[in-house]
């Protein structure tokens, strides 16, 4: 517990970029209490999103990125204990009543989920599922909701929307289903759209189509887009800014271009090395990150990446490096960062 507070003290740097953050997260912590012990899934993260911005949160499974997204959507299970602050347009969302949060979900912040196979109700027509999202927040009658749903289906480029409205999820392909999920998310014109591994379950071609669609729609609607992914390559191609998470903490944050020009944090470098590249020799094994992902049931005294880090030194094990702004628009949490151009 003592180390938890130590990490907390080191935390909340103000990482806002523009003048008016739409969604502002500061020192967000999510802990799951269970019989086996506590799991510290998110250990004090802070960031903000401006209107129209595209931000990517990158990390491997267990880094806390999905839990953070769920916290922002206020859809965590009741076993989760959330502290810190999530402000939407300056209004605090943590600790709100369920009724107020219902109003917030879908209307202010909406989410596209990872698995289109499972994220739609198999026994409901897709049109009704979109219409439900509309009527939940907007004072429209059945007919108007129906029209708006068809409009949304058209907007996510689904052909023959009048017919598709009456179909069931299993009648659609994976890509089509994900389009429906996107239509649901956009139903009430949210200010922030969270895409949690939205293309992971899709094949590569569809992946690109869905990503392009998301960016087009972002342009059309002016919504901010928060991409959550394990795929640094994907973030590189689509996001303006990248946040890298490891073991429930933000370890590096930078504008995408700058990040690829020179990585500071060894973990980010390791992620980068794991991306297959067009100029990689065939039949050469891609480097993997050695060791195991961190155990989130204990908060380590030192840097959480220390056990797997190639650059590890004694001070890394003794004390966790805080996330600090070291250069304009660049933050990292590392005692021994790579210097510009190094580690490539």
């Amino acid at each position: 517990m003592a180390s938890a507070t130590a990490a907390g003290d080191a935390a909340p740097p103000d990482v806002r970029l523009g003048p008016s953050p739409l969604l502002e997260v500061s020192d967000l912590r999510v802990t799951f209490h269970s019989r086996a012990g506590n799991v510290y899934a998110v250990q004090g993260i802070s960031f903000s999103i401006e209107p129209g911005q595209t931000l990517a949160i990158i990390g491997e499974s267990g880094s806390g990125k999905t839990v953070s997204a769920q916290a922002m959507m206020a859809i965590l299970p009741r076993t989760a204990h959330v502290t810190g602050s999530i402000r939407f347009n300056g209004e605090e969302m943590v600790g709100r009543s369920e009724r107020e949060l219902r109003d917030y979900r879908g209307r202010c912040v909406a989410m596209v989920f990872q698995n289109p196979e499972r994220s739609l109700n198999p026994t409901m027509r897709v049109g009704s599922q979109i219409a439900e999202a509309i009527t939940t927040h907007l004072p429209l009658d059945r007919k108007q909701a129906h029209e708006r749903a068809i409009e949304l289906l058209r907007m996510v480029r689904i052909p023959a929307p009048e017919r598709r409205f009456y179909e069931y999820p299993h009648q659609l392909s994976g890509g089509m289903r994900q389009r429906v999920v996107i239509a649901i998310a956009l139903a009430c014109g949210p200010a922030v759209l969270i895409a949690d591994e939205a293309t992971t379950a899709l094949d590569v071609t569809t992946q690109a189509q869905i990503m392009d669609l998301l960016l087009d729609l972002q342009e059309e609607t002016g919504t901010a887009l928060l991409m959550i992914s394990h795929d640094l390559g994907l973030a590189a191609s689509y996001a303006e800014d990248v946040i890298v998470m490891y073991a429930g903490k933000v370890v590096e944050r930078a504008p995408t271009k700058e990040l690829f020009a020179g990585v500071r944090m060894p973990y980010t470098q390791a992620l980068l090395d794991a991306i297959p590249r067009i100029d990689t020799q065939p039949h050469v094994l891609l480097p993997v990150i050695g060791g195991r992902p961190p155990d989130l049931s204990v908060i380590p005294a030192g840097c959480p990446f220390a056990p797997r880090c190639p650059e590890v030194q004694q001070d890394c094990r003794d004390q966790a490096p805080p996330l600090k702004q070291h250069e304009p628009e660049r933050w990292w949490a590392c005692w021994h960062p790579y210097r510009k151009g190094a580690g490539q």
Binding site: H33, S34, R35, P77, R78, T79
Partner: peptide, 10 residues
């Protein structure tokens, strides 16, 4: 089910 703490449940 969720709700009651794990220890209570066991």
């Amino acid at each position: 089910g969720v709700g009651a703490g794990p220890r209570v449940r066991s």
